[in-house]
């Protein structure tokens, strides 16, 4: 059984909390643990913050689209999240995903956003086209924490740039 939702929000700071809570609420029927929910909220918060701060530079009146799909499996479920903007795009995605890399170091930015998304989610991919926008796709398996951790396949991390 699949479930789907789509959310379109203004790229405004006050929507950061709304976006992560909405995605967490959508995932609730999969019975996520507290840790799983916390990881999902953090990853969503990072992606949405990037749209607001970087894609639209906090000034433009941009839109962010969040699409989620859940899949029930025999052991639990999977949550797929896609977050995209129509902002400036990322010049060098390979550089952008490096830990501690930031273009706004004067602004108390840690440069850890993409690292956290990759660490907290099971799958992560980033696609960006300069001048057109950026798309982050992430998936997280739910309900596999007890004992299944060691049998997890390696993380698939795909980074694509069409700049």
């Amino acid at each position: 059984m699949k479930n789907y939702m789509k959310l379109e929000i203004s790229a405004r700071g006050e929507n950061e909390g709304f976006a992560r809570s909405a995605v967490a609420a959508f995932a609730l029927p999969l019975n996520p643990s507290f840790t799983e929910l916390s990881d999902i909220k953090t990853a969503v918060s990072e992606a949405v913050t990037n749209c607001i701060v970087h894609a639209y530079s906090k000034t433009q009146d941009g839109k962010i689209i969040i699409e989620c799909e859940t899949e029930q499996t025999s052991t639990g479920g999977v949550l797929h999240i896609e977050i995209r903007d129509f902002g400036c795009g990322i010049e060098d995605v390979e550089q952008a995903v490096q830990p501690f890399y930031t273009t706004l170091s004067d602004d108390e930015r840690s440069g850890m956003g993409f690292t956290i998304m990759q660490t907290f989610m099971d799958e992560f991919s980033l696609t960006s086209i300069r001048g057109e926008g950026t798309r982050v796709e992430m998936s997280r398996r739910i309900g596999e924490e007890d004992g299944a951790a060691f049998s997890k396949p390696p993380k698939s991390i795909r980074k694509v740039s069409n700049a």
């Binding site: 916390s38 909220k41 953090t42 918060s45 913050t49 840690s110 956290i116």
Partner: peptide, 13 residues
């Protein structure tokens, strides 16, 4: 009750 990477920047600041 919640912290993302902004907290890292805040604490280091």
């Amino acid at each position: 009750s919640f912290m993302d990477s902004t907290g890292i920047g805040f604490l280091i600041g």
